[in-house]
């Protein structure tokens, strides 16, 4: 059960901006509050995709772990999302996620969320449009990152 204060914070989350009240009620019924301590691994690469998170406070790094080395490729924080792939079937986690500070978030079970999207298409359309915005933004940022604009070649790669 989500406390009233968290519901108010969640309604202001950019992912849910403009959400009709009945759809918010439906989401609230599936949501639960989670917290992570600093430096806690939230999920690892290849873990079965499980939860989708809306971050209320704190910072999380998305990482690639290699033998003897961890590369941080993205940070997400307040007002952002983590684990969008959990809404897709048969996709395990592509990266590792770790909290860099104390994190407060609201989590949704990806399987349940997807099932509800299929059952209630108005709800599903809203959620999928927002997920698409997140994915598009991440893709754009990744392409920009790939340009390596700060190298001595100045983005000429």
């Amino acid at each position: 059960m989500i406390p009233a204060g968290v519901r108010t914070s969640l309604a202001k989350h950019p992912f849910l901006e403009g959400i009709p009240e009945p759809l918010l009620d439906k989401l609230m019924g599936m949501a639960f509050e989670v917290t992570f301590e600093p430096d806690q691994v939230i999920f690892r690469e290849a873990d079965p995709s499980s939860f989708f998170y809306l971050i209320l406070s704190g910072t999380i790094s998305v990482e690639i772990a290699m033998p003897g080395r961890v590369l941080r490729i993205q940070t997400v924080g307040e007002g952002e999302e983590l684990g969008w792939s959990s809404i897709m079937e048969k996709v395990n986690k592509q990266f590792q996620a770790r909290s860099l500070s104390a994190v407060k978030a609201v989590a949704f079970d990806g399987v349940r969320l997807k099932a509800e999207c299929e059952r209630d298409t108005d709800f599903g359309y809203f959620v999928m449009c927002r997920i698409l915005e997140v994915v598009a933004e991440r893709l754009r940022a990744t392409r920009f990152q790939m340009l390596d604009v700060y190298s001595s070649r100045g983005g000429a790669a």
């Binding site: 910072t59 941080r72 940070t75 920009f144 990152q145």
Partner: peptide, 23 residues
């Protein structure tokens, strides 16, 4: 400050500079 790629000792932001606009 944000960097395109960071190691574990980097506690700041990772991502292109435009990702800082939301803050």
């Amino acid at each position: 400050t944000t960097v395109d790629y960071g190691g574990v000792s980097w506690r700041g932001y990772v991502g292109v500079v435009t990702t800082l606009f939301k803050f």
